[in-house]
Every structure is written in C-alpha cells, then in structure tokens.
C-alpha cells in the first residue's frame, strides 16, 4: 500500500518536474508576446480539453502499455495549467517595479531572475499546485494501462470485486491530493510578499 502510494507520487513528481522544465521557458517567452501567447495557450488549452481516457488510449496505441503513455499524458495535461499561471504571474509584475529595475541598470536576464520570477513565484506555485492535484487524479488511470501506482489497486479491486482494495486505493488517492493541495497552498502563502 505504501509502496503503491510512493510509486504514484513518484510518477506524478517526475512528470511534474519534466512538465515544469518545459513550461517555464515556454511561459517566459510567451509572457512577452501577446499574439504568440494566445496561440500557445489556445493549443495547450485544446490538449487540456481532450478527455483524459481518450488521450491515454491514443498514447497507448503509439507507445504501448506501461509508464510511458501515462507519463506523456501527465506532462501534456500539466502544460496548460503551468504555462497559464507562469504567464499570468510574469505579466502581473508591477510596471513601476520593472521600470525601477531597468533604470537601476539590470540586464533583461537580471531583471528576470532577480525581480520578475521571484515576484511571479506565488502564481507559479499556484499553477504547480493545481497541476499536481489534477495529475494525482489523472495518474490513477495508470492502473488501466499498466503504469502501476494506486490506480492498479483500484482497477484490480474492481476486476476482482475486492471492495476493500477499491476503498483503500480511492482513499489514498484522495489523501495524497489533499496533502499536496494543503502543503503547496501553504508554500504559496509564504511566498506572497507582505
């Protein structure tokens, strides 16, 4: 049970890390381009609206059963939530603050690292929180495609009519989602200046 929970968390955490590594540069570039960001967010939003089971089925066709299709689905789904919040966070930085940074002689890079990203951090963590919770739920489908995690407990339970497994798996998924929600929300509050 603990092993399954850890496996579940492991898939979500590694997919989240990869998703963030993609979303951060995308978001930074998109924040500076009005038209480009509309196009990007439109595309990511379209991916986001594909029903998760359908997307997973398509990915299984392409990559076979196992962790790979689930991992790709998680990364793809997270993009919309992550990029949207990164763009919103960066655009929300006060114009006067940016002007002061430029006027004091920061390069574009120094401004990004020292001012824009730290001030956008609460919004970015907010995106990570929403994405992580959605990914915990989505990763349950991993049980369906042989990716392991708590989903396998639930789906096996359903197949074999082991009610206890179903309940235990479901409760564990809920607990994981709630724990992530609470801890990231706390972090988000801590990071907000005041």
């Amino acid at each position: 049970m603990i092993a399954l929970t850890l496996a579940h968390l492991g898939i979500v955490a590694s997919a989240l890390a990869v998703a963030l590594a993609i979303a951060l540069p995308l978001g930074i570039v998109a924040a500076r381009r009005t038209r480009g960001s509309a196009l990007l967010l439109g595309t990511l939003g379209a991916i986001y609206t594909i029903p998760s089971l359908a997307l997973l089925a398509l990915l299984v066709q392409a990559f076979g059963l196992g962790v790979a299709p689930l991992f790709i689905a998680l990364v793809a789904y997270a993009q919309f939530m992550l990029v949207r919040n990164i763009v919103a966070g960066l655009r929300g930085v006060d114009a006067g603050t940016l002007d002061a940074g430029r006027g004091l002689g920061m390069t574009a890079r120094e401004l990004l690292v020292r001012v824009e990203l730290p001030l956008a951090l609460p919004a970015i963590v907010g995106g990570i929180r929403i994405a992580a919770v959605a990914m915990v739920a989505l990763a349950t489908l991993g049980g369906y495609v042989g990716a392991g995690g708590l989903g396998s407990l639930i789906f096996n339970g359903l197949a074999l009519h082991h009610d206890r497994d179903i309940v235990a798996g479901s409760l564990a998924v809920c607990a994981l989602a709630i724990a992530i929600e609470i801890s990231l929300r706390t972090l988000e509050r801590r990071l907000t200046p005041h």
């Binding site: 006067g96 430029r102 002689g105 200046p193």
Partner: peptide, 20 residues
C-alpha cells in the same frame, strides 16, 4: 546602456521598491 544606468541614480514613486 546597462553600465551607464548603473552609474546614474534613479528614483521613482514608492512603488519602485522591490516588494520581495
């Protein structure tokens, strides 16, 4: 421009302080 700006003091309204 960047080096020059560092050699010139610049102050605007209070919102210019970095809140973080």
């Amino acid at each position: 421009p960047v080096a020059m700006r560092r050699s010139i003091g610049y102050a605007i309204q209070a919102i210019g302080l970095f809140p973080h």
